Amino acid sequence: MTGILESILNTNKNDLDRMLGVNLIGAFLGAKHASRVMVPSKRGGILFTASSCTKIGGIASHSIWLLSCISPIGVLTGSDVDAKKERSNGKNLKAEDIAKAALYLASDEAS
């Protein structure tokens, strides 16, 4: 739905309302209705994820970021990883690190 907003200069309020309705309110309502099943059973979890595209995308990016708890924004891929290894002795965040965080948050251990 990010494609709804081409440019902030050409965006009208109706387009912004539509984008927020799909990206933010839709995600929120999905979580609301899922929680109606999870709360009585005292089980379950809701994970919101956002890609780096939502952060780079501009105005449309800010909606789901309000709810996100997992995002691969700091993950380096391909040649970026090799270049970073040459400049740093530290640990580079990898996609599998994000996946492990999601698995933990979705597990029974993460209350």
Results as ranks from 00 to 15, higher is better:
M1P: 04
T2E: 03
G3L: 04
L5I: 15
E6V: 14
S7L: 03
I8P: 01
I8V: 09
L9E: 13
L9R: 13
L9W: 09
N12Y: 03
K13I: 03
K13P: 01
L16E: 08
D17M: 06
L20W: 09
G21L: 12
V22Q: 03
N23C: 12
N23R: 09
L24K: 06
L24I: 11
I25S: 05
I25E: 14
G26Q: 05
G26C: 06
A27S: 14
L29E: 15
G30M: 00
G30S: 01
A31L: 02
K32G: 04
K32V: 10
R36D: 11
V37K: 12
M38I: 13
P40R: 12
P40W: 06
S41Y: 13
S41C: 05
K42F: 03
G44D: 07
G44L: 06
G45T: 15
G45H: 12
G45R: 12
L47P: 00
L47N: 06
S51T: 06
S52P: 02
T54Y: 00
K55G: 00
G57T: 03
G58K: 07
G58I: 13
I59F: 04
S63W: 01
L67V: 00
L67K: 00
S71A: 09
P72V: 00
L76H: 12
L76N: 11
G78L: 09
S79W: 10
S79Q: 12
A83D: 10
K84V: 09
K85T: 11
S88D: 12
G90S: 13
K91N: 08
K91V: 09
N92S: 10
L93K: 00
L93C: 09
K94F: 14
E96W: 02
D97C: 01
D97V: 02
A99P: 02
K100W: 02
L105H: 10
A106N: 10
D108S: 07
D108I: 07
D108A: 05
D108L: 04
A110F: 02
S111N: 15
